[in-house]
Design a protein around this nucleic acid. Structure first.
Lengths: 98, 98
DNA sequence: TGACTATTTTGCCAAATTGCCAAATAGATG
DNA sequence: CATCTATTTGGCAATTTGGCAAAATAGTCA
């Protein structure tokens, strides 16, 4: 395999990997509607706050979300809402496999 | 979080997880062109044959590929080529983040 | 300054993933 | 049957991930 091709696939894989967690998908879909602060996401997710924060770090490192500070609150938002268009295809795939 | 919603995200996440590996993305993209036997994929990937086989198992379990036997050869093919349409969005995201 | 709130970081541990090698399996062919 | 080829499976070590709890940080407000 050509090294530049390998690098391209590795970059794509790292984004997919960041998305490949139920909690992070929930967060992404929630952010699709509107930007949200961490504590609100914790209520939605139900995990420990530090756990939610780690998931957000993963999403930030992948470039999928960004934060905006307003006083004590950090408001997270999707940077590229198109990543969720993929969900339709996945849902179709799942219906097919049932 | 509602349990049925949680289940839906878990299912989506498992498909994303199956895709979230450079070698498996390479395999998927290669299969987009035509169905291919395992030994040919090993030459493309460059890993041990057993490693390639395990990657194919992951893709099969996710319902992304299926195999057709012809003599000794197993020909793998994509079950849902649409999963790769997503690559365009990811590539756009990466250009944005450079 | 100190107290308070929102969030992140660190440490820890169990569980999952990855990739190689060796052994096992499935089908073809003599 | 034995043998050959294509592929899968099992076992193992190294690495990564996920989640909680405690400590640290960042900003607000009195």
């Amino acid at each position: 395999m050509k090294p530049d091709l390998k690098k391209a696939y590795a970059a794509q894989a790292s984004v997919l990997k960041a998305m490949a967690h139920p909690t992070r998908l929930l967060i992404l879909n929630s952010l699709k509607k509107r930007e949200t602060c961490v504590c609100e996401l914790r209520d939605l997710v139900g995990d420990d706050l530090s756990t939610v924060s780690k998931h957000l770090l993963v999403l930030r490192n992948a470039g999928l979300v960004a934060a905006r500070r307003e006083g004590n609150w950090l408001h997270y938002r999707l940077t590229c809402p198109c990543v969720l268009d993929f969900a339709a295809c996945l849902a179709a795939l799942e219906r097919k496999n049932v």
